[in-house]
């Protein structure tokens, strides 16, 4: 039985079959890796960034940590409710039902972070804002997107290209901004 299987595998048809199986396994794995890198879990509420930015809400109103610390922070529903309780549509809109339900039950939104760096990278928002960068330089123009998404892959090459550019010709700045220990510790 094993011998016959071996002979079939060694025949031209067997070879082709093996190659087809290997290719399909490989492409499935590649597809799986691709999907796991791309797809985000759905947000607890379909928060339209473009609408809020269009109404003139500042980024720092909901993400105030960006100006003063490492993490920008994601708002709790109390922040949402602070404005929304004064808006009549909050009580009628279907899209805002998750907010009403969460407020009634005392639950909170568990947002899905979009702009993430790995655990071994220590990113701090404050110096980036202090250096004169605006939110949209990294996070894209939020007045154009409904659900927040990353405009680019946030990897080290992307960080360093900006760091090198920002250092200009200043040697001390260049050393500081390209030092491993600035982000990895």
């Amino acid at each position: 039985m094993v011998r016959r299987l071996f002979e079939w595998v060694m025949s031209p048809m067997g070879w082709i079959a093996v190659v087809i199986v290997a290719l399909s396994v490989f492409s499935l794995a590649a597809f799986g890796i691709y999907r796991s890198q791309q797809a985000l879990k759905p947000q607890p509420i379909q928060f339209p960034h473009n609408l809020h930015v269009g109404l003139g809400v500042q980024c720092l109103y909901c993400h105030p940590g960006a100006a003063r610390g490492p993490s920008s922070g994601l708002p709790t529903i109390n922040k949402c409710w602070g404005c929304h309780q004064q808006i009549a549509k909050t009580q009628t809109s279907d899209k805002l039902k998750p907010l009403r339900d969460a407020m009634a039950s005392g639950a909170n939104f568990v947002w899905v972070p979009v702009a993430k760096v790995p655990d071994f990278v220590h990113f701090n928002h404050r110096p980036h804002i202090a250096a004169g960068l605006n939110c949209e330089n990294c996070h894209g123009d939020m007045s154009q997107v409904e659900i927040a998404e990353n405009p680019q892959v946030m990897n080290m090459g992307w960080c360093l290209s900006c760091h090198k550019e920002r250092a200009g010709g200043d040697e001390e700045k260049f050393i500081k901004l390209t030092d491993c220990g600035t982000c990895h510790y």
Partner: peptide, 15 residues
């Protein structure tokens, strides 16, 4: 494990 030019420390870059 590299020498930090800016902090003059021995770094260990885990990644």
């Amino acid at each position: 494990t590299v020498h930090s030019q800016s902090e003059k420390l021995n770094l260990q870059v885990y990644n």
